[in-house]
Design a protein around this nucleic acid. Structure first.
Lengths: 233, 233
DNA sequence: CGTAGATTTGACGGAGTTCAAGCCTAGTGG
DNA sequence: CCACTAGGCTTGAACTCCGTCAAATCTACG
């Protein structure tokens, strides 16, 4: 990989407390590669050969069973994915494909595990990262179990507005509606109907542009919950 | 806590690679206590003061939002629960109550974090434990997103039969049906109807006694999936 | 301007919830 | 030993939500 890409990787919370030699050794064995959109990266059931880090672009994590497919999560810069499989030397539980053209760092799983043995700072950083991922899934799981589709969509819109809304509070949907639907656990048709349901609550949709004109009303419907919707914690 | 209880705690994978002094210090500060059934232990949103270990009995982890309540998981001997909150020094994402009279070990969160700093063996054991918990939730999440209620129940029954079925393959449901329903993400009424739906597939239910007389047929319906239903991985 | 793909809409059916009533069982008290 | 009652479980009916299929519409891009 190119030396010019190292600093941004080094700055990741996961790597910042790592010793210089460990980091150098790890990067020595890694690949930084750009993939086109819609490319299958890994499949559930395969053994975990690499730890992935999203440097640029966006990766969809999805799974199949009982003849169905569902989006499990979206990985954005700068995060890792499938860390747990690598640490346990197990098979992937999810598949992954790029959404857009994406720059990814591939770190051989064996090297990650070796670095873990030799570098206690890295081990502690891994614990924090893992615990954070764990809590992330628990939140998704809670949301799915405790909210209706419309509530999930409403909360998701409120979150997007907070994270990336402009001065007016308008924002663009980060994925196409088909993907958003799958992420929220519904069909594209149902997502479309859910947007309609939310129209009386000040949700204006135009293609991928969204504007919330009555956040108060939407919040009453959505009942946002710190223990589900906050990125921190 | 009583010295006679130490060995079984020490034998936990989480603690076995810990140094003797670290373990002694940790236990020194801990409490081993027996709680009656249906007792609330912790509430979501509270700061994580203790790491819990189920020594005997059974603990239900549940969550509330949008005016609803759902069972998230059941903790059995011998497992920890709410480890991630303790490690991140964050608030609990789930509440917990005992199902039956239960013997629990309470380890002060601060001591866990200190032990982590000083004991690398413990840090590595934590990584494995956390990664395992993480993969556990992902499996639950997949199951909920990819399966219908009936399929979930069918797979759950197949799992119980494998785990605790007697010579005939008969077994007892581990929780009352209301709890089982909530765990599977459905109402008690719907669980009852799902059992009826499964009758033609050889599922005989008598109170809490279950016998599967046609595992092949049930498997065709359930489509069990190694990447969801296997305890290992 | 035309086409492919994405999105929306309509119609329908199936799955799941709610509410209400009935049943069954275990523990209680006579 | 036998009612009796409370709670858990089941059943029925009505309704809502959501998925499926098919068709219409929209949109981006060549």
């Amino acid at each position: 990989m190119r030396p010019s890409d190292l600093p941004q990787v080094r700055a990741l919370r996961l790597f910042e407390s790592m010793s210089d030699p460990s980091f150098a050794a790890l990067m020595q064995a890694s690949y930084l590669q750009t993939f086109p959109a819609q490319l299958d990266l890994i499949h559930e059931g395969e053994s975990a050969d690499f730890l992935y880090v999203v440097i640029e672009g966006c990766v969809e994590l999805y799974a199949r069973s009982n003849g169905r497919e569902a989006t499990m999560a979206m990985a954005h810069p700068v995060t890792t994915f499938i860390l747990a499989a690598v640490l346990r030397d197990a098979v992937y539980l999810m598949s992954a494909r790029t959404c857009t053209r994406s720059k990814l760092l591939l770190i051989p799983a064996q090297n990650v595990r070796e670095a873990l043995e030799g570098d206690d700072g890295f081990a502690r950083a891994i614990i924090q990262e893992l615990a954070g991922c764990y809590r992330g899934v628990v939140k998704e799981y809670k949301s799915l179990k405790l909210r209706t589709s419309v509530e999930q969509l409403a909360n998701r819109l409120l979150r997007y507005r907070k994270e990336r809304g402009d001065a007016d509070g308008a924002f663009e949907l980060p994925y196409d509606k088909k993907t958003l639907a799958s992420l929220l656990g519904m069909t594209p048709e149902n997502l479309s109907r859910s947007f309609n349901t939310l129209k009386p609550y000040g949700v204006e949709v135009n293609g991928s542009q969204v504007r919330l004109t009555d956040v108060k009303a939407l919040e009453i419907l959505a009942k946002p919950n710190t223990l589900i919707d906050e990125r921190a914690n």
